[in-house]
């Protein structure tokens, strides 16, 4: 029980009368990389929103190391890094200024040093003082990856981070994810990229129609996963 960093206790979400997530219970151990698969509308993004406290569950509770995140609030949010398909950056500011601003909100010591350190890590050091609006899509994504790592998060949520990424950015992202997995950061990755998601995962969550269709270890060979996934989604 103690090794579980996150526990979902029968959480569900309704918008109005429409149920987007049926009661879901599962435990995530510290240092795991969970990949979440599922067709559109399966409730994946809702799950991440609930976990990142962007929305409240209609029922049930989420526990972080045994305490309800509802009570932890700020202390819990400080542990999270979130990468979404939105850049989370101010267009008129430079990458450096953006990161410096967010670092100060996360209470990072010496925000300027941390910002340039991470921008170098994502290979943005040459352009980091130009306004974000002049960046290509790939550069934007690399900057937003750096942004999510500012406070050295204990848990990282990624919501379809590979959508629209160029080769360079996607290479940088995979490199960073592998690095974070080695550092025992807990990762929840929502993706449509079956082979990449499968290879990174320590455990899998497959969702369909707001319900868990499969939850557990990798049981099939990489090459057979697509068939396995499709059978799960159809049955679910």
């Amino acid at each position: 029980m103690n090794s579980n960093i996150l526990s979902l206790d029968k959480i569900s979400k309704k918008y109005g009368e429409k149920t987007v997530l049926k009661p879901l219970t599962l435990d995530i151990a510290s240092g795991e990389c969970i990949t979440v698969f599922g067709p559109n509308g399966a409730g994946k993004s809702t799950l991440l929103k609930l976990l990142s406290q962007q929305t409240k569950p209609s029922s049930g509770a989420i526990l972080y190391k045994g305490s309800k995140i509802k009570d932890l609030k700020e202390a819990y949010r400080a542990k999270l890094g979130v990468i979404s398909h939105q850049p989370f950056l101010y267009e008129g500011l430079s990458a450096f200024e953006n990161l410096q601003f967010y670092a100060s909100l996360y209470g990072v010591d010496n925000p300027a040093r941390r910002a340039s350190e991470l921008l170098t890590r994502v290979e943005m050091n040459k352009r980091m003082h130009d306004p974000v609006r002049t960046y290509s899509r790939g550069m934007l994504q690399r900057t937003s990856i750096a942004r999510a790592l500012l406070q050295n998060p204990e848990i990282i949520f990624l919501d379809e981070p590979y959508t629209g990424l160029d080769r360079h950015a996607s290479h940088v992202l995979t490199g960073i994810l592998k690095e974070q997995i080695e550092q025992k950061t807990t990762i929840l990755l929502v993706t449509h990229d079956l082979s990449l998601g499968y290879s990174l995962a320590s455990r899998l969550l497959i969702m369909s129609k707001g319900e868990m269709a499969y939850w557990g270890e990798k049981t099939v060979a990489d090459s057979d996963f697509e068939g396995f996934y499709l059978s799960m989604v159809d049955n679910g």
């Binding site: 990142s52 406290q53 962007q54 700020e74 202390a75 949010r77 400080a78 999270l80 979130v82 979404s84 939105q86 850049p87 989370f88 950056l89 101010y90 267009e91 008129g92 967010y102 909100l105 996360y106 209470g107 942004r147």
Partner: peptide, 18 residues
Amino acid sequence: LSETSGGNLEALLLTPTS
């Protein structure tokens, strides 16, 4: 508009800021 475009408001809400 500068907060809502690019999802910055969402990002602000994700920080531990009150």
